[in-house]
Amino acid sequence: MSVLTSPAGIAADTADALRRRPGADVAGAVFKWLLIGATVFATGFLAVLLAVMIVDGWDVLSGNLWHFLTHGFSQRSAAEAGVWQGIIGSLQVALVTGVFAVPIGVATAIYLVEYAQDSRFARIVELNIRNLAGVPSIVYGLLGLAVFVQTIHGFTQGKTVIAGGMTLAAMVLPIIVITSVEALKAVPSSLREAAYGVGATKWEVLSRQVLPAALSTILTGTVLALARALGEAAPLILVGAATGFLSFGDANMLETFTGPYTALPVQIFNFARLPGADWGVNAAAASVVILVLVLAVNGLAIYLRNRFEKQW
C-alpha cells in the first residue's frame, strides 16, 4: 500500500485504511495476489525457458561450444554439427533486410507525418500499414516465394539470401514505419516552426532538424525490428533456407549472397525435428545461442534509447 502517486491511489489507500478491520479484506488480498501471480507467470517463463535450454544443451555448451559455433551442419552425427552457417546466414539476411526495409520504412513514415495532409492516399497508406502489421509471417513467405524467388528471379537468383532478406524486409516494414511515425510525431512542432522562421525549406527542416532529433528513437525501432527478423524461421522456410547439409563450395563471402543459405532459427527447427536425444541437445544449445543474440540486440536497442533519449 505504498502507491501514493495519484489522487486515486491516495483515496483508495485511505478507503482501505478507514475500514474497521484492515486485515480482513480477504477478497482484495486474494485479487492482488492473483494479479501478482499472473504477472510472475507472464514474465517469469523467460527465466524458465533459459534455464531449461541451458540444462538441456549443457553437453554442447560446456565442452563443445567453440566447435559448435565454428562448424557447419553435418549429417553424420550431432556432435560434429555446428551452427556457423546459420549465424552467418542470419547476419547476411538481417543485413539485406535492413538495406531494403529501413530506407523505405523511414521514408514512408516521413511522408505520413511531414507531407501527407490527411489526403486520401495517406489514409490508404496508413490503413495498409496497420493491416500489414497483422499479416502472419508465413504469408510473407508466400509473397517471397511467388514474387522474390520466381517473378524477379533475375535479380535475386532464386532461393538466396537476397530473396530471404527481401521477404523479411516486407515483414518488418510495418514495424519500422509505425515506430518511425511515433518518433517523428514526438519531435515538437516548435522546432519545425523555428526552422521555417529563419527561411529553411521543407527539406532543410527535415534533414537538418527533424531527422537528427528523431534519429535515436528511429534507430531503436529499427534495431528491434531487425531482432524480430533474426528470430523468424517460417517465411525463410518457404523461400528456401536450407534445412539440411549446406555446402558453400569455394564461394567467397560476397558470392554466398546469391547462393544457397540457411539461418539460425531454421537450423534450430532442423535440429528439433531430427530424431534422437543428441540432436535435441543441439537444438537446446542453438536456442541458447539465438536467445543470447536476440536479447543482446534488444539490450542494445534499450541502451540506445536510454543513451540518446531527448526530453522535450
Partner: peptide, 29 residues
C-alpha cells in the same frame, strides 16, 4: 511506478523470443 518501468520493457523483451525456441521448449519441457 518503479516496478512498471522495469516490467514494461521486460514484456517487450518477451515479445522478441523466437518462436522456434518455444517450439523446442514445448517438446523438451
Amino acid at each position: 511506478p518503479r516496478v512498471r518501468r522495469v516490467m514494461k520493457p521486460t514484456l517487450e523483451l518477451l515479445a522478441s523470443v523466437p518462436s522456434v525456441v518455444l517450439g523446442v521448449f514445448a517438446i523438451s519441457f
